[in-house]
Design a protein around this nucleic acid. Sequence first.
DNA 1: GCTCGCTTGTACCGATCGGTACAACTTAGC
DNA 2: GCTAAGTTGTACCGATCGGTACAAGCGAGC
Lengths: 212, 212
Amino acid sequence: MAAGTAPGRSSLAQRARPLTAKRTLSDRASALPALAEAFREHGFEGASLTILSQATGLGKGSLYNFFPGGKEEMLAAVLADIHAWFATHLFDPLERSDDPRAAIRSMIEQVTAYFRSGQRVCLVGSISLGASGGGFSHRVSAYFARWITALAECLERGRVAPTAARAFAEETVCAIQGAIILSRALGDEAIFGSIVGRQEKVLLDAMAANRS
Amino acid sequence: MAAGTAPGRSSLAQRARPLTAKRTLSDRASALPALAEAFREHGFEGASLTILSQATGLGKGSLYNFFPGGKEEMLAAVLADIHAWFATHLFDPLERSDDPRAAIRSMIEQVTAYFRSGQRVCLVGSISLGASGGGFSHRVSAYFARWITALAECLERGRVAPTAARAFAEETVCAIQGAIILSRALGDEAIFGSIVGRQEKVLLDAMAANRS
DNA sequence: GCTCGCTTGTACCGATCGGTACAACTTAGC
DNA sequence: GCTAAGTTGTACCGATCGGTACAAGCGAGC
């Protein structure tokens, strides 16, 4: 859904500069990271339109042009963007890699970088705690469900029994979310690495134990 | 700081009905649970004075009479109240019990009840994710630090080596926080019990393993 | 060069925000 | 009953909220 050829009416138009309609999409997409960061730092309620406006560098008019649904649509788009990022960088590799151990190591690495060793909030997790989770509960639940099943599937490919694999997967996602809270609360980056590292070892050990 | 004799000017006044000054304190304290629940449900930013007012049944005037510092003071008082509750029901027993295994089992039980199997948000954890954590970071960090040390100390009394005990303690608090997020996100109470139960088993096993 | 349609900043809307002021009320002590 | 202190609801404050309207700005196509 990123680049690709626009479904223009005339195939001749492809030679020309990007259609205005296409530039719209592009600008909307390029605003998402800034919006995401603003929501992360202030929460959904706390991120006012003023904050969102100066975070993106777009005026209110532009924001409402791209997101007619207002803040709700902005958050929805951000959540979809995050889900997409995780899908390509975490979930797909977990599901597809033919080396489960490497896939898990890579996941831990990506997660540590993405969450900045726990100093960066997980927006999805934070939404699930807030009251604003109402309209987004489906997105939130889909994100975590996908993560868990992807990880469980990877573990299964590492010869872990299905039920155990699912338990390990839940435990791992849970540990990551908890590690963010704990390391932020204690203002200690190191604790994130130690908890996540320990969890990585648990997973790798589980796969090693069931190795034929 | 709860009951006790008020520092009245005349010792004769003790016979009389509670001084008005004392009733003030009592009413302030009795508003805390409602305030806590409102903050849990709406977050600090989301809990408007209107919400807080109807949650407590007190008018704005009364709220500002009891909490001249406004919302900030309300949240501070709520956090102190929560910390006190955890201290008496969780931390102290962990530190004092002469049966570490029973103390840990009791902790898990209390935690499960308190967080309603993960459907009830941990206000302290939620604050640590929000931007409003600024002025409360010390309180938040003290809460988690105390929990971890209390649990680690209990494990040590169960003959777990100090470094391992601390690691287990961090892991457990982390698992609880993560379990709240996950069970809320997935709308699945069961997952809280399964994760917390598994963690309980890990702790008990660790103590059993080091049993002479 | 002109038009047309998308984009954008700005002014503005009513509602609500956190917070203050204060008058009316309740209550205790005499 | 009277007074004084403590408590409460309500009216109100300026600021800001999310959201709308709209005219100026801008680039593409003829």
